[in-house]
Amino acid sequence: MLPDTPPDSRQRQVWLPAEFTSLAGLPVGLRYAHWDGRSPFPSDPADVEFYVPPLVQDIGIISRPLGRMTRLRAVQALSSGTDGLGARLRRLPGRVTLCNARGVHARSTAELALTLVLASLRRIPEFTRAPGLGAWQPEVFPSLYGRSVLIVGYGAVGSALDDLLTPFDCAVARVARTDRDSPRGPVHRAALLPRLITSADIIVLTTALTPATHHLIDTHLLARARDGALLVNVARGAVVDTAALLARVRAGKLRAALDVTDPEPLPAGHPLRETPGVLITPHVGAFTSAMWPRLEALVRRQLNRFAADEELDGIVAY
């Protein structure tokens, strides 16, 4: 086990999540401390130069020490999305390098996206919630085989999902910011989304949340979706206009499977929880047994770069 390194004014201070106490292969010459986001600070935040925040969804916990980190040079997020963290870093007087965990969670998130698709098509939530579970009433449900799938946001997660869809012989359309080619076919620019959504049986959102994608899926776009389509969101909740989605689902025009919501966490009694045709998971796309080994490898690589004064990977513009 790697103990918290004793103070040494010649060493640069690094804060790591509490789960990383056994992380091996870290560079010498750095001073390490571990914080779980709940306990008192493990050292003076003013000495910290490299901060790996706890893997929590509460941006308040992540940002609590930031105002006191006057020597901070780099923040390595353990998530792919850094929209909330970037906003907090903009408030600091100095320039801090922000890095994300792009690609680390791609396969796990794509796996959940596929799970949500299959569970929704086969009406698994209705079976588990049905009052008459003792009744044996087989029905015929939609299959994923041969369906048209629109992936909105063709980055690491979208590409991983595309791979998982291969055995199902789906007709996949791909959307990103600009036109480009991919190993599995063309990727279309976002401007074509209103046209492409009209022919999609399943719409999967894997895009980052930016000013351009905030409420990207709004009333007008949802109105163009074909009746009975399934919307799956494993991106960020605010990519979708929640009120518009609710209206469409309540009208029986759409089904939804959401790992992320707006607001998040979703309050008890929120209409999304009570609406038939909506499947919700609590933002767990990344959380699998494969997560920690991948995160450890990322942090080890970044710290070695930091110790050698090399450029870090995954730098995010904010």
Rank of each mutant, 00 (worst) to 15 (best):
T5K: 07
T5A: 11
R12G: 09
V14T: 02
F20Q: 02
A24P: 08
P27A: 07
G29Y: 06
L30V: 02
L30G: 02
L30S: 01
A33Y: 02
S39C: 04
D44L: 03
V48F: 00
V48E: 00
E49V: 15
P53V: 04
V56E: 02
V56H: 02
Q57R: 12
I59R: 07
G60I: 05
I62L: 04
T70N: 05
R73L: 15
Q76F: 01
L78T: 14
S80F: 15
D83R: 05
D83G: 00
G84M: 14
L85V: 01
L85F: 03
G86Q: 02
R88E: 13
R90H: 11
L92C: 03
G94D: 14
A101R: 08
T109P: 08
A110E: 06
A110S: 12
E111G: 11
T115K: 05
L118V: 11
A119M: 14
A119S: 15
R122P: 01
R123T: 00
T128M: 15
P131Y: 07
W136K: 02
V140Q: 00
Y145G: 10
L150C: 03
G153R: 07
G155F: 11
A156S: 15
A160D: 04
L161V: 10
D163Q: 15
L164Q: 14
C170W: 00
V172M: 00
R180F: 10
P186D: 06
R189Q: 14
R195Q: 12
L196Q: 13
A200G: 06
I202C: 03
I203R: 01
T206F: 13
H214W: 12
L216S: 09
R226C: 04
R226V: 04
V232K: 03
R236D: 09
V239G: 06
A247T: 12
R250W: 03
A256Y: 01
A256H: 00
V260F: 09
T275C: 12
L279D: 05
I280E: 03
H283P: 05
M291I: 08
W292V: 15
P293T: 13
R294H: 15
E310V: 10
E310F: 10
D313Q: 11
G314F: 09
I315E: 12
